[in-house]
Design a protein around this nucleic acid. Structure first.
Lengths: 333, 333
DNA sequence: TTGTACGCGTTATCAA
DNA sequence: TTGATAACGCGTACAA
């Protein structure tokens, strides 16, 4: 800036005003002259120096277990979209669900003076909360049941409703025996979905049956392996799965057993990923609006940063069922 | 730092030495006292101020078309892994292949004084090159045929070899009529793969046949739609696809037509994504080592940053064939 | 309409 | 073993 000022024969104050578009009081002629020199010299504003004065960096930290997991990828992308739109840039932080990596990143972000932090953590941990207490920067957490201090924004996906709608869809088609093949998790959403499953059944006068609920891993092999080993409870005509990969596993098993989908068996997945649409038949699934969730996380976080309102907020985001080809009326035998 | 200094009754210089571990000459007692206060006060070093002095930010920019594309996700993850390992943090920049977004990010990164930039761009563009010329920061580009200035590191995936190996695998199994269903692209790798296909055939004494090459989009519908419309050239017993999704499209079509895979038709995909392993049969495919490529990009970039050696480098990365269930000997009719 | 001077939080140098 | 101070590049009062 000093260099530019000298070249143009003006002071740095003048250059500063111009590059920051606070140039109401500078002559059009000098404005143009300075801008031209800026262009010619390939000058870039040094935001480091600026931030020292302004006390903000227009930078956020994005903490995510693993960007390779489709769910997090979409959410991250939504976060990034909103961030650019608002003039912010994101630091990408993968933690692999390791508390050490997470803390190490948290420290790094503080050192880098980020204006806020988005935490899309999959684990529930109190250790982290303790650590967070020293972090006096606004942050936004997704799907956390932890009770953070006041500068937190909590965004919650409505897992209860997503599950409820799925089961209701099956009940509406006439299914009576609906299995729930859930994924293993210590997170609160597992319990919420379970409630959704149970409530939907009871609301429609169907007794809850423990034998119809099974737990396995969140992938193709998990679901496939479970059915291969245990088969179906007699008269089961539909399965709700923990995610689309599990639904795919069920589909593969059904094919092998010559069970027609959806003729003999209806299947519902969860997440509405590409998997639900490349399979044949295409899978009915619950869309959680990951991209939107990412956008909301950033939007709410920035609002918290801008306002002086430091009360904890909770923002719910609805899920909705996407009906495709893997569900239909149960055959009458 | 000043605050800590005052609390401990020492100078900022002393505190600085201690937090930077340049404390050979400070008394153990004061060291401990300062460290304790740092801990108690929840003090974090301000890297903004540090960077103003040291002239580096330990920060890199990661420019990528879209993190949601599995190929870029993996590469990005590899880049991030290497970055943390080396003490660097990444700015995440999705461009959606928009030249405007890219330039806007490039400017932002310069303003943020990044030490280097990784460009995993999918488009080939000279405009960008012109723009880059003003960017006097080291950068690493993946799969670009553009001839950049000396501070660039170029990493190239060996698409020729990947394709060559795939075709050779089919020839080894006894296939004579091998279709190449390629994806539409303006990138140089398209041409390289095509050469790989041709050369492998010729090397094995099989004449190249124009009719066996078709172009469609890089997804399930592209491949499925093409075959549905045009069918197979008579006597074709194998297909090389542009990526795994296309291979999946071929598989779906084959199922519909009651064509057995690999009995009647062998299929090879490209990228070794999860798709090649969730399908049935599992798809033989070419692994491009995306994660490794990401690591290499960062590693080479950092070497360039550290060294004063400013000559353009080119680093090749091999691909290799992963044989699974979708390829086999052609049936003799 | 433009310029001067100061402060932002650090690091490095050199003196005490 | 410790401390004083200049410099880094910018934004902003206030003065001219």
């Amino acid at each position: 800036m000093k260099h530019i000022a000298e070249l143009c024969g003006v002071s740095v104050a003048t250059v500063s005003k111009i590059v920051n578009r606070k140039d109401d009081d500078v002559k059009e002629e000098t404005r143009l002259r300075v801008l031209k020199t800026v262009e010619e010299e390939g000058y870039f504003i040094n935001t480091l120096a600026r931030s020292m004065k302004t006390k903000n960096t227009k930078t956020l930290g994005l903490i995510v277990p693993d960007i390779k997991n489709a769910y997090y990828t979409d959410t991250s992308r939504g976060a990034e979209d909103m961030a650019v739109r608002k003039g912010y840039t994101l630091f990408l932080c993968n933690t692999d669900d390791s508390i050490n990596k997470e803390i190490s990143y948290l420290v790094k972000l503080m050192e880098k003076q980020v204006d806020g932090i988005i935490i899309i953590a999959s684990m529930e941990r109190d250790v982290e909360m303790e650590e967070l207490l020293k972090i006096n920067v606004p942050f936004a957490v997704l799907n956390s049941s932890t009770n953070y201090k006041d500068y937190a924004v909590k965004v919650q996906v409505d897992n209860y409703k997503g599950m409820y709608e799925g089961v209701e869809h099956l009940l509406g088609l006439g299914h009576k025996k609906i299995m729930y093949l859930q994924g293993e998790t210590r997170l609160s959403f597992g319990e919420e979905r379970f409630r959704g499953y149970k409530d939907a059944l009871e609301k429609h006068g169907i007794a809850y049956d423990d034998n119809l609920v099974a737990t396995t891993t969140f992938n193709v092999e998990g679901a496939y392996g479970y059915l291969r080993e245990n088969g179906l409870v007699p008269e089961t005509t539909a399965i709700m799965c923990g995610n689309d990969l599990m639904a795919l596993g069920v589909l593969n098993w059904a094919k092998e057993e010559c069970i027609d989908v959806p003729g003999d068996l209806s299947i519902i997945g969860y997440d509405d990923t590409i998997f639900s649409v490349i399979s044949s038949p295409k899978i009915t699934t619950v869309n959680q609006h990951c991209h939107l969730v990412g956008e909301i996380l950033v939007k709410e976080l920035l609002e918290k940063i801008d306002s002086e309102d430091f009360t904890q907020r909770m923002i719910p985001v609805a899920s909705h069922l996407v009906v495709r080809e893997s569900t239909g009326k149960p055959m009458i035998h």
